[in-house]
Design a protein around this nucleic acid. Sequence first.
DNA 1: CAGGCTTGCTAGCGAACGTTAGGTTGCCTA
DNA 2: TAGGCAACCTAACGTTCGCTAGCAAGCCTG
Lengths: 178, 178
Amino acid sequence: MRDLANALGIEAASIYSHIKSKEEILQRVCFRMATEFFEALETAEATETTATGQLRRAIAAHVQVLTKNTAASAVFLHEWRHLSEPFHSEFLALRDKYEGHFRKIIKNGVEKGEFEVPDEKFAALTILSALNWIHTWYKPEGKMPPAEIAENLSAMLLNGLRATEPRAVTPLTRVHAT
Amino acid sequence: MRDLANALGIEAASIYSHIKSKEEILQRVCFRMATEFFEALETAEATETTATGQLRRAIAAHVQVLTKNTAASAVFLHEWRHLSEPFHSEFLALRDKYEGHFRKIIKNGVEKGEFEVPDEKFAALTILSALNWIHTWYKPEGKMPPAEIAENLSAMLLNGLRATEPRAVTPLTRVHAT
DNA sequence: CAGGCTTGCTAGCGAACGTTAGGTTGCCTA
DNA sequence: TAGGCAACCTAACGTTCGCTAGCAAGCCTG
């Protein structure tokens, strides 16, 4: 709190004119990020019809939210553990729901013959795992912009490392300005 | 410290008969885990000759170390940030070296025509990302044992989700008892 | 222009933190 | 059997933590 106050050019006690408690900050960050992830995901799902397209859009959306604010992302990904009830449970429910969207995209893909996975829950978890690590190394001034990161991730996750036949990886068409 | 002492059935001050400071615990955990990861990785590399084989072994080794002690893994993956100098720099150097091993396996694979990736550093990072998340959900009593997790991860990372031609995923032959 | 709301301040509370000082006990060894 | 050391204790240190109380200044609105 004293560090935060210092960064704001304010006394620590003055912060409490704006918030009720330290945890309120945590709650706001966690749930605002959750909302951002959901909105981005729903847009992604609505934009495409094929499972492959939806998944690639979903990955791009997730990466975009994640890279837009890496500090908030780190809080969203790790610090939610310190939420008190009922926020902790509520947050976990949202997380499950978000993961469920990915699971459903994958399930659809498997049913339509686009994908082939041993376990769709495991696949969804692995995809999100691969995405959720980027906040630890991503730097806005780095040479790889979020869109390119997303494309590389999509390519890797959809096609794997293995060299076989040539695989077309067409760029995503632009939906709206970022 | 007081929690730790309580878990040990001891007074907090008594801990200092065994360690110099709280950070010493952090140092020991971080560097012991680093050693474990390196030893497992080097065994994996020595066991196979193809890049594909080495990568699958390396993934299995990493997963095995990670799942053996999820609490220590969480410390290794996140809390190293709180190491003081020179341990912080030393740790980062080890991390780079470890990642370098993966990068080299991938590079070899690309040169031998086994793999096809846009950026081998990025590929290495993505693979480790996918692996390093499992400590957040893995439970020893869960229905998926570490070896199976590793196999599924290898399958996903090497082949991707996309259904194309049938891909043989042969199980790893057992090297030594676990 | 009076009232209240917003935003900030100073002072300080009570709890928790990592850690130290100094002492007691019991075992292992010379 | 004497000495030393390992392992533990009680007591308390100085610091940092999140936060509250109480107050002052500035702004907007009735």
